[in-house]
Nucleic acid binder design. Structure first.
Length: 162
DNA sequence: GCCAACGTTGGC
DNA sequence: GCCAACGTTGGC
């Protein structure tokens, strides 16, 4: 069991979109960075991830999702009309993968970036590192627990509501 | 909108 | 294999 953080630009796909999706479940396509892809590949069914909004204020962790389908070929890499099209990727050996996730609890209110930066014990967390751009990143169990502890009334460890 | 930081590309 | 140029990300 491992923990992760997944970044999304809410103008592309938001936490709200996830809650409105059938089964509160969505695919996570469009990753086009090798390091992030390698993390996608090492995700296992049942792993949990923080859902983070970048770019648009307020940048914050909105909730937790569970990995419900492990990495498989991302079809958008073969679609010339997709913004994620990659002409260099071969169908016989797809370069890019995606996973599927489902909602596993919300933080209310969301835990904002300044709030995370203000938590001394989170120093060294990848998200808070200067210049950090990874859209898929590992989170240590310690970091996971600290973030959960920042919302008394929030979700408990494991992603279930109290 | 700016700009620093980073990843990728391509010439050599 | 180096590295400059370029495009993108993402905080502010």
């Amino acid at each position: 069991m491992h923990y992760w953080l997944m970044k999304t630009d809410p103008d592309v796909y938001s936490w709200r979109d996830l809650l409105a999706a059938p089964g509160r479940r969505t695919t996570w396509e469009g990753v086009r960075n090798f390091q992030a892809r390698n993390f996608l590949r090492s995700m296992r069914e049942g792993d949990l991830a923080f859902w983070y909004h970048s770019v648009t204020m307020p940048q914050a962790i909105y909730g937790v999702v569970r990995i419900v389908r492990e990495a498989y070929a991302d079809p958008t890499q073969f679609d010339p009309t997709s913004r994620y099209f990659d002409p260099a990727s071969q169908e016989s050996s797809p370069r890019w993968v995606m996973v599927e996730v489902e909602e596993a609890g919300a933080f209310e209110p969301a835990i904002t970036l300044p709030e995370l930066r203000g938590e001394v014990r989170l120093e060294g967390m990848e998200l808070l590192r200067r210049g950090s751009r990874l859209s898929i990143q590992p989170v240590t169990e310690r970091e996971w627990d600290i973030v959960l502890s920042m919302r008394e009334s929030g979700i408990t460890k494991g992603g279930k509501r109290p």
